[in-house]
Design a protein around this nucleic acid. Structure first.
Length: 1022
RNA sequence: GCUGAAGUGGUGGAAUUGGUAGACACGUUGGACUUAAAAUCCAAUGGACAUUAGUCCGUGCGGGUUCAAGUCCCGCCUUCAGUACCA
């Protein structure tokens, strides 16, 4: 009986599918456990070996929990809306729904290429997913509920008093009873106050407009990140370094009417919630920074009337936010962002030219320039003065681009003695720097240490520390009506509209420009067919191309645009939802994925509650993982879901990097004596490559870019070879060339080659390489001293252009899924970034072969009913203990080595005992399920191993009677000594000192001290 | 700059509360088997010195605490990730 992994794996994958082994039930006497992976976007490129890493880890955990008697929910699905399918559609005209389906289910694309499909790729790795619960975000039966949630958000407002979302009808009730002055809501700024009578007298349209300012999703003209190349709006987290994350296109600011999500309403709860979930510290920290809470005060400064101003109203005020109200007496100037709306109103005629020039200059600088250039201090005096709220002294008002329009109020009170930036600004423009700190020297730099602050020269704040002074300052500000305590958040509301085709359509139509929700019973509103997936010629989103995209309010269905009469038939929304809409609630849908009537049934939600373990990449820290927490909290407020944090524990798996291989190409050339002029004629010769380990004295050109070598003893043979070659290729270098240039040299150039051409010893398969591309057909190779040709190695992200992508299909075909699973875990800690190197897989593969041999040889099964020996039991129980601890600590790499040790030991012990070998299979089955199932069956068990109970650890088998003590001298281990464990400290000391090796080490000296730690170590000092 | 993580053989990585550094693999070298290769098996493998016994040095760098430090403390350096003129 041989270990025929291909047959075994196919057999058991079929068994699991046929028997629905991993189907989870929504009712069970067992305790529940929910293991979730971040669902993938099904791209046309398919999976590479880096993708399944997290899935393997979660699968091991899910299988382990099944062995422990849990009812495990372990689902999988696809985040199948997205930009790549749309861009592919624009390029090829294929419907994104079709290409997406092929990418998942496999099949032929329009060009006739066969695409394997995600599903088959996942299946062959042997995951224990419950496929009956699969979701696809682009499926109407799924996005029906995404649209439903959107309607719920539209019909809700956030009540700060109850600190939760409430139905919009409660707000309308308040409005008609008391007006809006008593309402404590999260809403747009600058809403006009009105009374109950006012409300009742407003037209329906006016009422709708007002309500829109309170709804949790609302339509507003916002400044958005517009990407002209993609023809769409991007969220902040879709922009990296000022360019679009996808494609790297430039992004500009533009005003547009867009749907927004009032996530800012949940800022505090999103922050507080982090304390009760077990996510990694770095991820929580990212979210905290993103939310950006700062506690302080808002302070109002009045602008002093200036007789030279044309509009002398004297009513101009500057609102600022500060975290240091305690330093208010240190204010010596104020700074506004150049974009601040007050700038034009308060600037004096004398300063006008200068200010306008500065604003123009700032506007020209891109956001990027402004960010990159932190050192340069610039600003202009507006000529205006504000009045200090307490001292009534005039304070000059400046503008400066270090103040950002987008944060706080876009204006700051500048306290140069307490803030580095204010300090630098004051120094640069010779503004006074009053010192308001007791016993602190501020002649060189600002003092910003809150903890050591004692306020001075500050009237009623004198002698107070930071905490007390802050409290007092706020109290005094409130007393005079010029400020109050305030908490500021960096978190902005999220733009929710995208000008794309391949996303969820909004369930929204427009009456007189006002958005109306389509009633939930008419959902889903399906994506219309369009001729082209590009924006329309008039600049409307792709849905503007649809001809059947209007809502008939009588028939309650989507009808032809030609029927729009704005009485019964109205235009539908042309934007679609962003990528994060569908992924913000999918974990709830898995609980009851096929429910046509509800988002998920109450019973299912009550039973499964939340995700116990969530595994995915850390790149979603401030995107998906924040938005989904927001939606969950909202759904919790609405009573739809039973918990307000959906994932108890979250682990980020690290990325698997590719180990690229490259060859060094030698390009012969000529060089002038000064080394500044080169002549190369690479195309005249066949390509020449040199083994990577060939020792050469290389030099760099002036810029340090080109690496080359000239003739010396080490490169003599290379030059000879090239000269011989050049005889064959006559027009290599002409005699004229040789006159012009002085030195002949060889230029070295690294070229990535397909990783499959290089073996574990870094040797290149030169024949495969030659056949790889026509250009390399006649390649010549310069070998090393051992007569082999070696490639260089580099660790970098897997990408097609580096030819370092490894397809799991190939690994599964060559070594089997169990080997792939074990090897991915064996590579290193789950959360770490680590390089993939296919060569190393032979280690785990031969481990599986050894495991197999423990159970069966050429004559068949060799497991017996023999009574296990003490050693056998010790090995087994040691393994149970370690593996259990490892799984619970997500230290999967170390359990793989534990298995190797166990199998090595049992092989050495010639163990054939079923009592040992049967439980060993259960231990291994989460990691290598196929081989475990097969041997489990061979041992005479019927049914799947997947629900066999996890072996019980029995400590009694590990009890030792003696210990091999390390005996060290001054901390250095010299030899070991076997001593009974029940020996007393004194007896150990005596025995060790009596040992002749001890005397040898001491060489006559008397030990000063002997440290004996029973069961651990003996250390002799002296 | 700030926040978080990490620096251990030729490589991936072990080392649970301070207690035998380098487990387990890969690679390398030598050997067995084979006509040969692959596969498999055996042995060696941190570095230096030493015929052996053994000695010295070794966990990014410099200090410190301790009988004992990869692990704890202080001060640096480097790499990766996130974030940034956040008032």
């Amino acid at each position: 009986m041989k270990y025929n992994f291909n047959a075994i794996e196919a057999k058991w994958q079929k068994y699991w599918a046929d028997n629905q082994t991993f189907k989870a039930e929504n009712q069970s006497d067992k305790p529940k456990y929910y293991v979730l992976d971040m669902f993938p976007y099904p791209s046309g490129a398919g999976l590479h070996v880096g993708h399944p890493l997290g899935y393997i880890a979660s699968d091991i955990y899910a299988r382990y929990k099944r062995h422990q008697g849990f009812n495990v929910l372990h689902p999988m699905g696809y985040d199948s809306f997205g930009l790549p399918a749309e861009q592919y559609a624009i390029l090829t005209g294929q419907h994104p729904a079709d290409t997406t389906r092929v990418n998942i289910d496999g099949g032929h694309d329009k060009e006739g290429n066969y695409i394997d499909g995600y599903r088959r790729q996942l299946d062959q790795i042997g995951f224990s997913f419950d496929w009956s619960r699969e979701v696809r975000t682009s499926d109407p039966s799924y996005y029906k509920w995404t649209q439903w949630i959107f309607i719920q958000l539209f019909n809700s407002w956030y009540n700060n008093d109850s600190d939760k979302a409430e139905d919009i009808s409660t707000l309308e009730t308040i409005f008609s009873a008391e007006g809006n002055t008593t309402v404590n809501a999260v809403c747009d700024e600058n809403i006009e106050p009105f009374s109950a009578e006012d409300w009742k007298s407003f037209s329906s349209e006016k009422q709708q407009q007002i309500l829109l300012q309170y709804r949790l999703t609302y339509l507003a003209e916002t400044e958005v990140n517009w990407c002209p190349a993609l023809g769409t709006v991007l969220a902040n987290d879709e922009i990296v370094n000022g360019v679009s994350e996808r494609g790297g296109h430039p992004v500009i600011r533009k005003k547009m009417t867009q749907w927004s999500m009032r996530i800012s309403a949940y800022a505090e709860r999103l922050l507080q919630g982090l304390d009760k979930i077990d996510w990694t510290d770095s991820l929580k920290e990212s979210q905290r920074n993103w939310i950006g809470k700062s506690v302080g005060a808002s302070v109002t400064f009045n602008i002093l009337p200036n007789v030279t101003l044309s509009a002398v109203e004297g009513s101009h005020k500057i609102d600022v936010f500060t975290t240091r109200p305690d330093t208010i007496f240190g204010v010596s100037f104020m700074t506004l962002a150049p974009e601040h709306e007050l700038v034009s109103q308060i600037t004096t005629p004398e300063q006008k030219d200068e200010v306008e020039a500065y604003i123009l200059a700032t506007a020209k600088r891109s956001e990027r320039d402004r960010m990159a250039d932190v050192k340069t201090i610039s600003g202009v005096f507006t000529g205006a003065y504000a009045e200090h709220p307490f001292t009534k002294e005039p304070i000059p008002v400046w503008i400066g681009d270090y103040v950002l329009a987008g944060y706080g109020t876009g204006a700051v009170m500048s306290v140069p003695c307490g803030d580095e930036r204010d300090y630098a600004f004051a120094k640069h423009f010779n503004i006074p720097i009053p010192n308001i700190f007791e016993g602190v020297d501020i002649s060189e730099e600002a003092f910003s240490d809150k903890a050591k602050t004692i306020i001075a020269n500050s009237d009623f704040l004198n002698g107070l520390n930071y905490k007390k002074a802050t409290k007092r300052a706020i109290y005094e500000l409130e007393k005079i009506g010029q400020g109050e305590g305030k908490t500021n958040y960096r978190l902005r509301d999220a733009v929710f509209s995208r000008q794309r085709y391949w996303g969820e359509p909004f369930p929204v139509y427009y009456v007189n420009g006002l958005p109306q929700m389509i009633a939930a019973e008419h959902l889903p509103i399906k994506l219309p067919e369009v001729e082209k997936y590009l924006p329309t010629e008039t600049g409307e989103p792709p849905l503007g191309n649809a001809t059947v995209w209007a809502w008939d309010t009588e028939k309650n269905e989507v009808v032809s645009n030609s029927l729009i009469d704005n009485e019964n038939v109205f235009p539908l929304e042309l934007n679609t939802m962003p990528g994060w809409a569908g992924s913000s609630w999918y974990f709830n849908r898995y609980m009851d994925a096929n429910n046509p009537d509800e988002f998920a049934s109450k019973e299912a939600l009550e039973y499964w509650q939340d995700v116990d373990l969530y595994i995915g990449g850390s790149e979603h820290a401030t995107g998906h993982l924040l938005y989904s927490r927001f939606w969950q909290k909202f759904l919790f407020d609405k009573g739809v879901v039973p918990v307000d944090e959906y994932a108890k524990k979250l682990i980020n798996q690290g990325m698997i990097l590719g180990t690229s291989a490259f060859v060094i190409r030698v390009v012969p050339g000529l060089i002038s004596k000064k080394g500044d002029v080169f002549l190369q004629k690479a195309d005249k010769l066949p390509p020449i490559f040199i083994s990577y380990d060939r020792e050469l004295l290389t030099q760099n050109d002036e810029k340090g870019k080109l690496s080359y070598f000239t003739r010396d003893s080490k490169s003599e043979d290379i030059f000879e070879l090239l000269e011989n070659l050049s005889k064959e290729y006559k027009d290599y270098f002409t005699s004229e060339d040789k006159e012009k240039y002085d030195i002949s040299f060889n230029f070295l150039h690294g070229i990535h080659v397909d990783v499959s051409f290089a073996n574990a010893s870094d040797e290149l398969d030169t024949e495969s390489f030659k056949n790889w591309m026509p250009d390399y057909k006649n390649s010549k190779f310069i070998l090393n001293e051992n007569g082999t040709f070696k490639v260089g190695r580099d660790v970098e992200k897997m990408s097609k252009s580096k030819y370092n992508v490894v397809n799991p299909d190939d690994i599964v075909a060559d070594y089997g899924a169990d080997s792939l699973r074990l090897y991915e875990m064996f590579l290193g800690p789950l959360e770490q970034y680590k390089p993939w190197n296919t060569a190393g897989i032979t280690g785990v593969h031969s481990f599986l072969k050894k495991l197999w041999k423990l159970y069966a040889d050429d004559n068949g099964l060799k497991v017996t009913d023999a009574t296990p020996t003490k050693e056998n039991l010790k090995t087994l129980h040691k393994t149970i203990k370690k593996v259990q601890e490892d799984i619970e600590n997500f230290s999967f790499n170390t359990s793989v080595s534990t298995f190797m040790i166990a199998v090595n030991e049992l092989t050495a012990q010639k163990c054939t005992s079923k009592e040992i070998l049967e439980p060993l299979l259960v231990l291994i089955s989460p990691y290598a399920p196929h081989i475990a199932e097969e041997l489990w069956e061979q041992l005479g068990n019927s049914g799947s191993i997947s629900t066999a109970p996890f072996p019980e650890f029995d400590a009694s088998h590990l009890v030792e009677s003696s210990k091999n003590y390390p005996i060290s001298f001054n901390g250095k281990m010299r030899f070991t000594m076997e001593l009974p464990l029940d020996m007393s400290k004194d007896a150990i000391e005596e025995a060790v000192l009596a040992n002749e090796k001890t005397q040898e080490q001491l060489a006559g000296r008397t030990p000063k001290k002997v440290i004996v730690v029973p069961g651990k170590i003996v250390n002799i000092v002296g």
